[in-house]
Amino acid sequence: MRRAVCPGSYDPPTVGHLDVIVRTAALFDEVFVAILVNPRKQGLFAIEERVEMLKEITADLPGVQVESFSGLVVDYCRDRGAQALVKGLRGATDYDYELPMAHMNRHLTGVETLFLPGAPGQVYVSSSLVKEVARGGGDVTPFLPASVHARLVERLRLNPPV
Rank of each mutant, 00 (worst) to 15 (best):
H103P: 01
L158A: 15
A92L: 12
L18T: 07
P120E: 09
P100W: 07
G138A: 13
V130S: 10
P145M: 09
V5K: 11
V86Y: 01
T14A: 03
Q65Y: 15
L129W: 09
H103T: 10
A4S: 07
L158K: 14
E98N: 11
I47R: 07
V153M: 14
D11S: 00
R3P: 00
P100T: 04
G91I: 03
T14N: 02
Y10I: 04
A134P: 10
L85S: 10
Q65C: 12
K41G: 06
K87Y: 00
P142W: 11
R106S: 04
V31Y: 08
T24H: 06
R157G: 08
M53C: 05
V73R: 00
M53K: 09
Q42V: 15
S127C: 02
K55A: 15
V20G: 01
Q122E: 13
S128F: 01
V37H: 07
P117C: 03
C77Y: 03
A102D: 01
D139R: 13
N38R: 06
F28H: 03
G138F: 12
P142K: 09
N159H: 15
K55I: 09
F32L: 15
C6T: 09
P39C: 05
V15G: 11
R3F: 05
L114Y: 02
S70H: 09
P13S: 03
L27N: 04
R80S: 02
G138P: 14
T14W: 03
V123D: 09
K87M: 01
G81W: 02
Q122K: 12
R135L: 13
P160N: 08
K131N: 05
G121E: 00
C77H: 01
V64G: 12
K87W: 01
V66Q: 09
G8S: 01
V111Q: 00
G91D: 15
V153I: 14
I57N: 10
A34L: 10
D19C: 05
M53R: 11
L129Y: 06
Y124H: 13
T113S: 04
D94C: 07
I57W: 09
V37E: 13
F143L: 12
R40N: 15
D79P: 02
S126K: 04
P161I: 04
V51S: 02
G43L: 06
A82Y: 00
E30M: 08
P62F: 10
P120G: 02
R23I: 01
V162Q: 13
V51R: 05
G136N: 14
M104C: 01
T109V: 03
G88Y: 01
R3V: 14
F28G: 04
A82Q: 08
S126C: 01
I21Q: 06
V153Q: 15
E30H: 14
Q42K: 15
A25P: 02
P161S: 10
V20M: 10
P160Y: 07
Q122L: 14
T93N: 11
E56C: 13
L72R: 00
R90P: 04
T113C: 05
V20C: 04
F45C: 03
S147K: 11
H149E: 12
T24L: 07
K55W: 10
P13Y: 06
A59V: 08
Q42N: 14
V86H: 12
L129P: 00
G43Y: 02
A34E: 11
